[in-house]
Amino acid sequence: MPGRNPSPPPAELLSVLRYDPATGVIVWTNTLRGRPAGRRAGSIDKDGYRVICHGGRTYRAHHLAWLIKKGEWPEQIVDHANGDPDDNRIDNLRLSTPSQNSSNRKLPITNTSGYKGVVRHHKSGRWNAQIKDGQKNRFLGAFDTAAEAARAYDAAALEMRGEFARLNFPIASNRRAAAGELVAGRLTRGPYRPRKPKPTPMWVRVEEIDLRDYADAA
């Protein structure tokens, strides 16, 4: 979970920074000890966030961007909507709760299914879909394929977390939501199951009969 600075930076630091909200880039406006004006400020830390050091303290660039653009130091976590911790465009930043921020995390390196919220049951071999609900995992169903389980997770994530949900199939899920196929209904109906093909209509079957067979019999 991204940390938060306990207090805003001094005005001295803000006076030598320039932020472009369209690109998310912060640059120095002054020359200091061989550092030219116009150079991009900060470096990338171990978590992938750009940080800027001043006066013995370290500030994350997206917090400074929020302060410069919004005029207030963020009391909540500043979340990167697209999950890229170095994309500090103002349109990509939003305030979030710890739970919302956690929902938007990428797949951990320990994931073995390739999908968020999907694990394989070691005995049955089927794919279980689950989602974090508070401090517990909510079971969403067992599926024949990992992709089916991933779509069940997406459905629950859309219902529970809205815009903060990180989906396995974002385009398809957003189209379902736009079409009014809300997941709440799917969850009450039970796990997702592919529809069985409809039987061939009777009139098609009649047309496929070779009438010459009857003529020969006659």
Rank of each mutant, 00 (worst) to 15 (best):
K70Y: 15
F169M: 07
A152S: 13
I77E: 00
V204H: 11
R138F: 02
G125Y: 02
N101T: 15
R89T: 01
F169T: 06
L13F: 07
L64W: 05
T112Q: 10
R105L: 13
G83Q: 07
E181V: 14
L32W: 12
V118Q: 00
A177Y: 00
L93A: 02
A147R: 00
H54M: 09
A177G: 03
V119R: 06
H54W: 13
D91M: 08
A149D: 01
A65M: 06
I26H: 03
I109G: 14
W28V: 01
A178P: 01
P170A: 15
D86R: 03
G3R: 12
I77H: 04
P9Y: 03
P201T: 07
P36V: 10
A61H: 02
P36N: 11
V119Y: 06
R57Q: 12
D87A: 07
A155C: 15
N82P: 11
Q135S: 11
S173G: 09
P194A: 12
L167Y: 01
Y59I: 05
G71Y: 04
S102T: 15
E159R: 13
R120P: 02
H62F: 02
V119I: 15
L17M: 13
E163N: 15
A150M: 08
P10C: 07
Q76P: 03
V78R: 00
Q135E: 07
